[in-house]
Amino acid sequence: MSKTSTERDVFLEKATEIAEQTFWGHVGCKMVELKEGSVTVELDVKSHHLNLIGILHGGVHATMLDSAMGILAMSSKPQDKMVTTNLNIHYLAPAKEEKVRVQAKVVHESNSMMTTEGTLTNESGEICAFATATFRRS
């Protein structure tokens, strides 16, 4: 069953308010767009997001990708608690202190499971990381 833009707007508003008090808010991620089957998330990378060699920490990549794909799972099944069962990330290129963006989409959905994919790109559009994730109803 498809969600109307009003239902997505309500979910987005509620989720954004809650997220600001969690790890998501601590990291500084911002949801830019939520549509049926896709989401866009951005982060202004600061020095505290970098690892010891001066590039975006792999854990920040993972946080952004898992969170974006998780938003899709939760917005698709708002009556359920969806949890990550598998997260697979390929790190392809470094990101520095710049704006990075994750775009994620649904690949497959069943009654209790969902598979998603996401890409993290830097300001020049280069793919820095690619991920897939599976979520199940908890």
Rank of each mutant, 00 (worst) to 15 (best):
N88C: 01
N111L: 06
V106D: 02
D44H: 14
T84I: 10
L92Y: 05
V102F: 04
S5Q: 12
L50M: 09
L52M: 14
T40S: 12
A73I: 06
K81W: 07
G58P: 01
D9K: 12
L50F: 02
V102S: 03
T16Y: 02
A95C: 12
N111P: 03
T63E: 09
M113F: 09
K105E: 10
E109H: 00
D44L: 13
L52R: 14
M31L: 14
Q79D: 14
L34Y: 05
D9P: 08
R101T: 15
M113I: 06
G25H: 04
D9F: 01
E17Y: 04
T22M: 04
A62F: 05
K46N: 10
G25K: 02
D80P: 03
E7K: 01
E98A: 06
S67K: 09
A15P: 00
E17P: 04
D44C: 12
V83L: 15
K81T: 07
V27W: 05
R8E: 11
R8L: 15
V100C: 09
D9L: 11
K14Y: 05
S67E: 10
N88S: 08
V41N: 07
A62M: 13
M31P: 08
I89T: 02
V107E: 01
A104Y: 00
L65N: 04
N86V: 04
S38G: 01
Q21M: 13
I89D: 00
L50C: 11
A19Y: 04
A68G: 09
Y91I: 11
W24P: 07
H61E: 04
